[in-house]
Design a protein around this nucleic acid. Structure first.
Length: 949
RNA sequence: GGACGCUUAGCUCAGUUGGGAGAGCAUCGCCCUUACAAGGCGAGGGUCACUGGUUCGAGCCCAGUAGCGUCCA
């Protein structure tokens, strides 16, 4: 083995071999354990957040696989409607200067499939590099035939049950992408803008209480006044009591509208009068429904002004209501129209005031343009009936969120859930299985033939399919069961559903998790007819942010590619990667500057295992996780430490008798017995943490044992034995070395699969195991019989002894190479036993020339002393230690202890404490006090001895 | 405006039922000792945001304040 761990030399070959040999497939043995990967967007590539979640999933799957479960990790991708369509449209524009309309729907969709074939492999390559043990043969895509069947089936059934309906409703319209989007795809941003106060003239000579012939309404979107169908005042508002029911002549269009009383009008805000535009504002829409006001749409699909308003009654039915718009405004974009309308108000003396105003503006998360509420025909899922059992399942604990706090987030959204707009005006996606005849009558069915048959439509009735497609989340809501073959009742569905755990970020609890629970429970029942949940546990991860705590995003240019953490990348390539092919090229300079500053020397290679270990170690319960390159480096060093420790073990065990042969003559050292027990305790703690989804604590446990116990102490303690022990002693130590290392590798394999398998291949044969891979070996189990408490206590004493000497060496600048003569004072019978038994360890690790036990009354040379309980270890100062320095060292120690002592003393003098605290606590404090008193008196004694010189 | 979360060492973060403040990185000192300088040994460093309450005892429980963040309106 090389002296440095080189991940690139082992990783890809190992993965290939695991995959080829089919190790990732369900074994078909044992209890099933399944995880469905949250399907990443096929257009994209995995970012650090994916790497984080995938590491956790792989750790769980490998852990359960080693525990003997029949494990399935289902992999796949999502067709990502808008995102994918946009990517291919942009490519088409750049390379051929064509739009999708030039190609036509079918040809365009063919292009998307071509593109997917070409670049859809990015994600699967990345997943392989991360070591993900997914069953590739079952890889699925939301647009696959099988999944498309499931989507159709669900749509048709929900429609039959009246849980899907079509209606003219106000939706969030993206005027750039020409599609409706759901509430969740809207990003609300705080902006500074203006509030325009407009005068609306009263009709029929009516006057306000203060004698004016107009009222004033305030608006942030003046252009929508063209579609006003009322003005609301608060019913309690005394100022306007006598105006309720009176009319207004709407300026510019000269349409007559009424004043209604509605609580939506806030008396405190502005003048207390609110213009009502039911076709262009969600709140106004509600007001309109309450007062049965008509709706007038004034925008086309680009959000430009129509030449004639389109009128509907409050239910969305078209009505004959003349809503002319002056020709000078026709075709104006909404923002141009805003300017023009303000100018006209001003000219007419109807502009009362413009105030600065901060407001929340909705933006499309994909297009980045301002969303316009627009009346359109859309398909909706009636969510309330589906939500009820979905809420109950979480309340009953059938589904548990980890950490639990996220249940609140789920409940708060579910309790106020809106109907879900599922139609999208796109070409890429699952086409809605609905057909229209020439009268606009709609028929829903699995295909056209079924529609004709079910509705007795003659062959000459012309039917056309709905042009729209379904929201991508509609198909991903079916993910846990559609991937297993539903609607067929397949054996896979029976075996692996419900799945065990869903690993995801809190940002998609609404988008995905909630909808998955609703859909799954509605369509999947167990043999008793009880609704089946999609998963038993939802493990919610935090979001990975950059080193400044900012969200990683392409437009900020602070995204990190997990592959760059693994392989490293030079600065120029990183700059190119971040600045090339941007949607907003003007940001490139700034991003380049920030990148050059943050990664002066590029990024070094760290390997997959270090990346995975880092991600696991950062998986605490918080909502934000700030990425830290320093930690990655630290854990790379950890991998190197493990590598070198293994080299040491192998050097001392290969081609030697490790006790796995016939000769069973063993004589274990204290260190052997101690490390065996320490390891068992580590297994227990590590397993508990994994079972509780505390990957951070599990990683710390593994790190602490490996570095601070196994390497720092145990390996050092084997050296005296291997150098000068008897054959039986050496055999026992070799046995312990190789056994503990082999088990440790198995323990850590789920976290760091590559390095553990690579080392294990060398280690296992020495324990008599000749198999191909660690990943199919049993996970270590805790064995209480191997925990030797006496050995633990004895070794603790040995450590304290050695630490005492090292502390004096360190503080007094005595070279670690200088052998020391020591004297022992006040040794108890037990101390003497421990001294005798462990002389080799003490001399070896503390580098001692001699240890002389002083009897009562023996003269000791003037020395510096270290304490182990009552016993003192003396190092003669002559020629080594300066008197002043030693006095200072003693004072420092006394001072430190005295501070603590005072506190404990105070506690014990407090009658309240002594009478009310539990006896165990008091005893502990008393013992502590005694110990500190002894220590101080010994130190004082030492001091006076030295001073007496 | 409403809801939730966060504030612990220079940095990134742990801290289980309330009972002696921890880790990694960074810093300082000494060491190229035959597993490892991506290392070894030793050391320093905290008013646990602030104020008050409950308690014998609070980083932890309760109330309030400030700052930051996320979601919703």
């Amino acid at each position: 083995m090389e002296t440095k761990f080189n991940p690139s030399a082992i990783e890809q070959a190992l993965y290939q071999s695991w995959e080829e040999k089919g190790y990732f497939k369900p074994s078909g043995q044992g209890d099933s354990y399944s995880i469905m990967i949250p399907p990443p967007n096929v257009t994209g590539s995995l970012h650090m957040g994916h790497a984080f979640q995938d590491t956790i999933m792989d750790t769980l799957i490998r852990y359960k696989r080693m525990q003997g479960n029949n494990t399935l990790w289902q992999v796949g991708t999502d067709h990502a409607g808008i995102a994918t369509q946009m990517v291919v449209e942009r490519k088409l524009a750049a390379e051929e200067d064509k739009t999708r309309h030039d190609l036509g729907r079918d040809a365009f969709i063919d292009r998307i499939w071509d593109w997917k074939k070409e670049s859809g492999g990015t994600i699967t390559k990345q997943l392989r590099r991360l070591g993900a043990s997914v069953d590739w043969d079952r890889e699925r895509f939301t647009m696959d035939e099988g999944l498309s069947e499931a989507v159709k089936e669900v749509f048709v059934r929900l429609h039959k049950e009246d849980l899907i309906y079509r209606g003219k409703r106000l939706v969030n319209w993206d005027p750039k992408l020409h599609t409706a989007i759901s509430d969740l795809e809207v990003e609300n941003k705080d902006k500074k803008g203006s509030m325009w106060n407009l005068r609306y003239p009263l009709a029929d000579g009516v006057k306000t209480q203060d004698g004016k012939d107009y009222i004033v309404v305030a608006t942030t979107r003046p252009e929508t006044m063209l579609g006003d169908t009322g003005v609301a005042v608060n019913p309690e508002d005394e100022r306007y009591q006598d105006l309720i029911g009176k009319d207004i002549i709407l300026p510019i269009v000269n349409r007559r509208i009424s004043i209604v009383a509605d609580e939506h009008a806030d008396m405190e805000k502005g003048t207390g009068c609110v213009k009502i535009t039911p076709a262009h504002d969600f709140n106004d829409n509600e007001v309109g429904k309450r007062h049965q006001l008509p709706m007038i749409n004034i925008f086309d699909k680009d959000a430009a002004i129509l030449s004639q308003g389109e009128s509907y009654d409050f239910t969305g039915k078209a009505i004959e209501l003349d809503a002319p718009i002056p020709e000078r405004l026709h075709g104006l974009d909404r923002f141009a129209a805003r300017k023009a309308i303000i100018a006209e108000f001003e000219e007419a003396g109807l502009l009362e005031e413009i105030e600065d105003h901060s407001l929340t503006v909705p933006y499309g998360d994909r297009s980045g343009v301002v969303i316009e509420p627009l009346l359109t025909d859309q398909w909706y899922v009636r969510v309330a009936p589906l939500a009820e059992p979905a809420v109950q399942a979480v309340k009953d604990g059938e589904i548990q969120f980890v950490p639990k706090q996220y249940e609140n987030m789920y409940f708060s959204w579910m309790n106020d859930v809106q109907d879900w707009c599922i139609s999208r005006q796109l070409w890429w996606g699952h086409r809605i299985p609905a057909w229209y005849d020439e009268n606009g009558q709609v028929y829903v069915g699995r295909d056209e033939a079924e529609v004709r048959a079910e509705n007795q439509l003659a062959d000459d009735v012309k039917l056309t399919q709905d042009e729209d497609v379904l929201d991508t989340w509609f198909s991903s809501a079916l993910w846990t069961f559609s991937t297993l073959g539903w609607p067929e009742q397949t054996p896979d569905l029976k075996t692996f559903h419900p799945t065990d755990v869903l690993v995801t970020g809190f940002d998609i609890i609404f988008f995905w998790v909630a909808r998955m629970i609703m859909m799954t429970m509605h369509f999947n029942k167990d043999e008793n007819g009880k609704a089946q949940v999609p998963f038993k546990t939802v493990y919610v991860t935090g979001l990975i942010r950059d080193e400044n705590g900012d969200k990683m995003s392409k437009s900020k240019g602070n995204v990190l590619d997990p592959i760059d953490m693994i392989d490293g990348i030079d600065l120029e390539s990183l700059v190119e990667k971040r600045c090339g092919n941007m949607m907003q090229p003007q940001l490139a300079k700034k991003i380049e500057k920030n990148t050059r500053k943050a990664f002066e020397a590029g990024i070094e290679a760290h390997g997959t295992d270090a990346l995975r270990f880092t991600l696991a170690a950062m998986a605490s319960t918080g909502r934000d996780i700030n990425w830290d390159m320093n930690r990655l480096e630290g854990y790379r060093n950890f991998c190197n430490k493990l590598w070198n420790a293994s080299r040491y073990v192998l050097m001392n065990t290969q081609d030697q008798d490790c006790g796995y042969g016939d000769n069973q003559d063993f004589e274990y050292s204290l260190a052997d017995r101690w490390i065996l027990g320490q390891f068992e305790n580590t297994v227990k703690t590590f397993t508990d943490h994994l079972d509780n989804y505390r990957f951070d604590l599990a990683a710390n446990t593994a790190y602490e044992f490996t570095w601070n116990q196994f390497c720092d102490w145990y390996l050092e303690l084997t050296k005296p034995v291997l150098n000068s022990g008897t054959e039986a002693q050496q055999r026992a130590t070799r046995y312990t070395l190789i056994t503990v290392l082999e088990k440790l590798l198995r323990l850590m394999h789920p976290l760091i699969p590559y390095i553990t398998d690579a080392i294990w291949k060398n280690v296992a044969p020495l324990t008599g195991v000749n198999q191909d891979t660690i990943m199919l070996q049993a996970f270590p189990t805790f064995d209480a019989n191997k925990v030797d408490e006496a050995a633990m206590a004895d070794l603790d004493w040995v450590k304290q002894f050695i630490l005492g000497i090292r502390n004096i060496r360190g503080e007094m600048d005595i070279s670690p190479n200088k052998p020391l003569n020591t004297f022992i004072k006040n040794a108890s019978a037990e101390d003497k036993r421990r001294l005798t038994e462990n002389q080799g360890f003490l001399q070896g690790l503390a580098k001692l020339e001699s240890i002389t036990v002083l009897n009562e009354g023996d003269e000791a040379p003037v020395s510096s002393a270290a304490l182990v309980g009552e016993m003192s270890i003396l190092i003669p100062m002559a020629g080594l230690i300066d008197v002043e320095a030693e006095l200072a060292r003693i004072d420092k120690n006394i001072e430190k202890i005295a501070k603590d002592l005072a506190r404990v003393e105070g506690k014990l003098k407090n009658d309240n404490f002594v009478s009310k605290a539990p006896a165990a606590v008091i005893d502990k404090e008393k013992a502590k006090l005694a110990e500190m008193q002894t220590a101080i008196s010994k130190l004082e004694e030492q001091k006076s001895t030295i001073k007496a010189l």
